[in-house]
Every structure is written in structure tokens, then in C-alpha cells.
Design a protein around this nucleic acid. Structure first.
Lengths: 241, 241
DNA sequence: CTTTGTGATCTACACTGTATAGATCTACAC
DNA sequence: GTGTAGATCTATACAGTGTAGATCACAAAG
């Protein structure tokens, strides 16, 4: 039944967390579930569907139970974060319009999720957010943006941009796009020596310094916030456009 | 030699363009090159390296020859765009600070590249930009941001954010993350009917309308531009911070 | 003519996802 | 108890993957 499916998804998740996504084969998942590979198919359909099921389960674990999801404003830290204490630095209490803490919490939840399950980043970023769980978190973003005063026709676009930045940042962080590809700085400099790179030259002191990714995430979030607020302001100033 | 390698990369690229990335197997590439699979290894090293080589070649084709790359301001449309005429809508001529047209051209070049080679989106987004070709386009972005007045310590962060948005948008467009997963709206609504989704409800008219991706890309670029300009302004107003 | 080196080949291994057909168990009717 | 229907799992097989290891063909050097 349904619990057999959960058992299978659990096995697949454990496997991915321990040995990476490439270790998730139908045979390996089957063995871990104590069953033969073909026995998985009635429950998960196919390999691709199994992967979708895995992200679905991740989102289920992440989001708070439906009961709390009434549309009323929630308190700041608890929603959508499985380990809020260390992961969600307290903000100066801006009590009245709480759309920002809510958005912030979602952003951190997504980033923390990717940190805990790096293999999921590629899937989260590539597959459409069509599962019920994913729709729920998108809905939270919609609500926050509406509360922030973003004009309704713009909300879905801004949501896409927001999630692109946040998921993209997290995926790049764990996926190595922001890294140096494993070359040490000397070798890297050698590779790039043959061509004129005036920008790199001018920025050299800052490029060589190590990056504080937590701070960068904070800065990106701040940029997104001003972006959202400017959308709202523009709307308020001339509602015709 | 080196031209044998190019021959192999050409075969792999053609294969990917015609039948998708999954059709790029060592055996298939070998057959198309007129050689046995194992003969590829001295030239490309491994499958992963072959894929890296493919994106490298894409970037080489895209960027203008090194000669033009002197750091002097270039004319608006030509740089970094393989098919500028239809793909790069003319902007109102803001002649004096041309950092924006330059950035815009790069953004469109990246998006057009992904449109022409959808298979490359995942690779572009996941692998670090360490090849000489990639470094060159990053350098262009650095220069544009510096010209825009972005403070030097912020430039690399803003560059990362910029490329995350642009590559992320393009990848999501062709990869289906922005889509509905192949379900028609009725089925989709049925899937989501069981739970309260106040945001979706409030936005329903706008969510059902088809999305103009070109316009959305324009709007995202406009947002990025104001973001960059606000960075520059903040810096000008109080240079200490 | 022999030797050396280089590039391509052949074979083989350990995998992958999954279609198909058969086996095994459970539950209920008679 | 016996028979049977349905669900669940298993066994086998196929066509494919990337690539390690050994072999082979052939041009240039001694």
C-alpha cells in the first residue's frame, strides 16, 4: 500500500544522502528495501517518478502541517524551517508587515534543505513545482508578495525570479558552480594568463579573498527585498501602469 | 591531434543538438566520428570531460575573437551575440554610459545560446565557469558593473547573482521548471483542489493567462538594472559603507 | 630488417532501467 | 478441506551505458 511506497522512498532518500544521487539505482533501492528491483514499479512507476517522489517527500518534511496553513499571519521563525534556531538569524523586529520574515524563512528553509540534501538541488531546480507540497510553498510566496504590495499581475513573475535566485544560489553553492573547479589559485591564474582580463585584474584583491557564503546569501536577500519593495512602491505611485 | 579532438566535439555537439543530451554516448559519438569508442579517450579523457569540452566549444563560438577584447567600450549590438538582429531588440539610445547595452547583449547571448542548445543549460548552470572562454565573458560582466559604478567589493557577488538569474531563467525556460509538468490545467487544478491555496485563488486570472517569456525576460532584466543602479547610488551617497 | 612508439581496436566487466512471464502467497466461496 | 481469484513479488532477459586491459597495425628510427 501507501506505506510500502514510503518505505521505498525512505530507502532511496537514505541512499542519496549517504552515497549521492548516482548511487540511487532501482537495484540498490530494491536491495535496501529488501525486495527485488521489479517489485518497486507498482509503487513508484519509474525511475524518474521515484526521483520526483523523493523531492516530494523532502518538501513534505519541510513544510509545516496543513492545519497551520490558514492564511493568517504566522509567527516569524517557526514556519517552513526544520532547524530554525541556528539556521535563521534573528532580524530586527519589524513587527507590522511581516511579509518579509515569512519570505526570509522560506528562503532559508530552501537553502538549508539543499545543504542537508545536496543531491536534491538539481532536481529542485530542474523539475516543475507541480506536486501539492511544492504548490503549497509557492502559495506562501504568493501571499507574502501580495502582502508586500506587489501588483497582482507581477506576482507570479516575481515569484519565479525569487525562487530562481534562491534555488539557483543554493544549487550553485553545493553544485560547485561558484567554486574554482578544484584548481588552486596558482594553476587558475596560469590558465587565464594568456588573455587580457582587465576586470579580473582590477578586482584581484577581492577575487582572491575567500567568500562568506552566508553573508552573500544575506546580501542577495536584501537586494531581493529592495527589489520587491520598489515594485510595490512603483505600483502605489502610479497604479495605472 | 587537436583537430581530431575538434572533430569529436563537433560530432558530440551535432548529436546533442539533433537528438538531445541523452543521445550523446561514447559509442554514438565514436560512430559519428568514424572510429571505435575507446579511440575517443586519448582526446577527451572521459565522458564528463567530453561534456565540459562541449560547453567550452559553445562559448568559444559565442564570444567574439580576442582581438576585439581590448577593454575599450564596444559598439552596442555586436559583442557576444551570434545572431543579434532578431534576438536583441533595440533599446532607446542611451549613448553615454553604455554599460547597460553591453550587459544586456551578454544576457541575450546567453539566453539565445540556451535556446539554440537546450541540452547545454544544465551543464552551463552546474559546472563552474573556469574555462578561458567563460572567464572572458565573466570579465565583460565585471567591466560593465564597474562602469556602472558598482563598488568593487560587491562586483563579484553581483556578477554571481546576475548570471544566476539569467542562466537560471534560461535553464528553467527550456528545462520545464516554469512549465506545468505536462498536465493540462484541468488535471492540475484537480491535483491542487484538496488544500487551501489562497494565493493561487487570488491570482487565478493571471495564473491562467499564458506567459510571454520574452516580456518576462525583459522585465527581469529591467529589475536587475534598477538593482545594479541602486547599488551604485548607495555607494555614491555614502562611500564609507 | 628490426625496433620502437603511437594510435586504433577488440574483448570484457560491471552496471543501468525495465518488459515480460512465471511463481507464490492471501482470502474467501463452496 | 479444496478451488480459485487477486495481489504481490521474483526470475530472466534485453539493449544499452562507461571504461579497464590487452592486442594489433603500421609508420618512422636505428
Amino acid at each position: 500500500m501507501a506505506d510500502r511506497r514510503q518505505e521505498i522512498l525512505d530507502a532511496a532518500l537514505a541512499l542519496a544522502d549517504e552515497k549521492g544521487l548516482t548511487a540511487v539505482s532501482m537495484r540498490a533501492v530494491a536491495e535496501r528495501t529488501g525486495v527485488t528491483p521489479m517489485a518497486l514499479y507498482p509503487y513508484v512507476g519509474s525511475k524518474a517518478a521515484l526521483l520526483d517522489g523523493m523531492v516530494g517527500r523532502l518538501l513534505t518534511d519541510l513544510l509545516p502541517p496543513l492545519a497551520r496553513d490558514t492564511g493568517l499571519p504566522e509567527d516569524d521563525a517557526s514556519p517552513a524551517d526544520a532547524s530554525p534556531a541556528d539556521a535563521f538569524p534573528a532580524d530586527a523586529a519589524r513587527s507590522e508587515p511581516d511579509w518579509w520574515p515569512r519570505l526570509r524563512a522560506l528562503a532559508y528553509a530552501a537553502r538549508n534543505l539543499v545543504h542537508r540534501h545536496p543531491w536534491a538541488s538539481a532536481l529542485l531546480f530542474m523539475r516543475p513545482a507541480i506536486t501539492p507540497e511544492a504548490a503549497r510553498s509557492v502559495d506562501r510566496i504568493y501571499m507574502a508578495l501580495l502582502d508586500a504590495g506587489v501588483p497582482a499581475p507581477e506576482v507570479s513573475r516575481v515569484e519565479r525570479m525569487l525562487s530562481t535566485v534562491i534555488l539557483g544560489f543554493a544549487a550553485s553553492e553545493v553544485g560547485g558552480r561558484f567554486g574554482d573547479g578544484g584548481y588552486d589559485p596558482r594553476a587558475r591564474r596560469g590558465m587565464l594568463a594568456g588573455q587580457p582580463l582587465p576586470g579580473h585584474k582590477a578586482l584581484l584583491p577581492w577575487l582572491e579573498a575567500p567568500v562568506d557564503w552566508d553573508a552573500e546569501f544575506e546580501a542577495d536577500l536584501a537586494d531581493l527585498r529592495t527589489l520587491i519593495e520598489s515594485q510595490a512602491t512603483r505600483w502605489r505611485d502610479r497604479p495605472s501602469q
